[in-house]
Computed example of a mutant assay.
Amino acid sequence: MKSLTFLSSFTAVGISIFGQLIGVLDDSYAVGNAWFAGVLAGLITLLILIDSQVMTKCYIIIVSTILGTLGVGFLYLPAAIINIFISIKLDKKKKEEDLN
């Protein structure tokens, strides 16, 4: 799961910066810097590496996906898909913990 987390985070940060550099994320239609929300969402994803409860990690992934999608829009799709895979793994881990 660490590799998926790093992949999601770097994808989100990279896509957000790339979108700003090529001019897809123009600040004229958004309040503030839209690309910054994508970068922040990518950095929030790294918070699941901290040892905490599985449910907290699920909430962090959900917040990251929503923030990234609101900030960057359709460019955030690859990172959002990776976040979905992370959520599936966390759900399986939660079910295993419930059985024990």
Rank of each mutant, 00 (worst) to 15 (best):
45 T>A: 09
29 Y>V: 11
47 L>Q: 06
71 G>P: 12
63 V>R: 02
11 T>Q: 04
16 S>E: 11
43 L>C: 14
64 S>K: 05
87 S>N: 08
93 K>H: 11
13 V>D: 05
40 L>F: 13
91 D>H: 07
74 F>D: 14
19 G>P: 10
22 I>E: 13
38 G>Y: 04
93 K>W: 08
51 D>N: 15
41 A>I: 09
99 L>V: 13
27 D>N: 12
71 G>L: 12
96 E>F: 02
32 G>T: 01
44 I>P: 04
29 Y>C: 09
53 Q>E: 13
77 L>Y: 07
14 G>Q: 10
49 L>V: 10
84 I>F: 13
80 A>W: 05
62 I>P: 02
53 Q>C: 05
1 M>I: 11
83 N>F: 09
42 G>F: 05
55 M>I: 15
63 V>A: 14
67 L>S: 10
76 Y>H: 11
47 L>V: 08
51 D>M: 06
23 G>N: 02
56 T>F: 08
69 T>R: 01
15 I>G: 03
12 A>T: 01
8 S>F: 02
12 A>H: 04
37 A>E: 11
96 E>I: 07
24 V>C: 05
5 T>K: 00
93 K>R: 13
8 S>P: 00
91 D>N: 08
8 S>M: 14
59 Y>M: 06
47 L>D: 06
29 Y>G: 14
34 A>L: 08
84 I>L: 15
3 S>L: 14
50 I>P: 01
65 T>W: 10
8 S>H: 04
81 I>M: 15
12 A>F: 03
90 L>A: 05
31 V>L: 13
63 V>I: 13
95 K>C: 03
94 K>D: 00
1 M>Q: 08
66 I>C: 01
83 N>I: 04
33 N>Q: 09
72 V>K: 05
98 D>R: 13
10 F>Y: 03
